[in-house]
C-alpha cells in the first residue's frame, strides 16, 4: 500500500475530548459522514466548521474520543475533511473505530505537546513521521501493533473481514462445476 502523506494546518484541543462533543447524540439518528460533519465539534468549538479546511489535522491531548462508543464520531471527523488526528493518547473504542473505518490516527505525546493551533503539519502515515513545517521539529508516532497493521493493510475492517471470509477469492473450478450441475 502506498504510504499517504498529508499536509495541513493544525486545529488543537486539550485532554479528554469526548465523543458527545465530537458529535452529540441528538444528531446520531444519522450515520452518514457528510450529515454528521455539519455538527462536528459544535458543543465544544462552534468555530470548528468555519476554520477547518479539507486536509487539516486535529491535534489533541490525552484520551481523545473518550465516552460513548458511537462510530459517528470518527465518521463526523472524516466527513469534515480532517486528514488525520494526532493525540497524546486515544480512548480505546475511538481508536478501534478509527482503524476500522480508515480514519488516519497517530499517537505521539511529543508531537501533540509541541504543535500549536495553525501550525503547518506534514504527516507520513506509513512511516509514522510527523513534521511541524512551521517550527521545523520532527516526531515519530508510536508504532501500531502487528495485528492492527493487518487491519490497516486491508484498508480497514471491511476489507479485513472480506479477506477472512474469502468473499473476494476467485471462484474455485470445483465449485463452479457444482453450481452449474445444481
Amino acid at each position: 500500500m502506498a504510504s499517504p502523506v498529508f499536509r495541513g494546518k493544525a486545529i488543537t484541543y486539550g485532554d479528554d475530548v469526548n465523543t458527545d462533543v465530537i458529535i452529540p447524540a441528538r444528531y446520531c439518528t444519522s450515520f452518514r459522514a457528510e450529515e454528521l460533519a455539519l455538527h462536528c465539534m459544535e458543543d465544544l468549538d462552534p468555530e470548528f466548521l468555519k476554520k477547518r479546511r479539507p486536509g487539516d489535522l486535529i491535534v489533541a491531548g490525552n484520551n481523545f474520543g473518550c465516552g460513548s462508543s458511537r462510530e459517528n464520531a470518527p465518521l463526523a471527523i472524516m466527513g469534515a475533511g480532517i486528514a488525520c488526528v494526532i493525540a497524546k493518547s486515544f480512548a480505546r473504542i475511538f481508536y478501534r473505530n478509527s482503524i476500522n473505518i480508515g480514519l488516519p490516527i497517530l499517537e505521539s505525546p511529543e508531537a501533540a505537546q509541541a504543535i500549536a493551533e495553525g501550525h503547518e503539519i506534514e504527516v507520513d502515515l506509513g512511516a509514522g513521521r510527523i513534521r511541524n513545517l512551521t517550527t521545523g521539529a520532527s516526531f515519530t508516532a508510536h508504532p501500531f501493533p502487528e495485528g492492527i497493521r493487518a487491519i490497516m493493510a486491508a484498508g480497514g475492517m471491511v476489507g479485513f473481514v472480506r479477506a477472512r471470509l474469502g468473499v473476494d477469492a476467485p471462484a474455485q473450478p470445483g465449485r463452479e462445476r457444482k453450481r452449474s450441475q445444481g
Binding site: E71, I93, M157
Partner: peptide
C-alpha cells in the same frame, strides 16, 4: 467491553474479535 458498529459487524460475521 464496548465496541463500535464496524467491530460489531465483524463480530457478527466472524464470531470473534481482537
Amino acid at each position: 467491553t464496548g465496541i463500535g458498529s464496524t467491530d460489531m459487524a465483524a463480530a457478527w460475521a466472524l464470531g470473534e474479535s481482537w
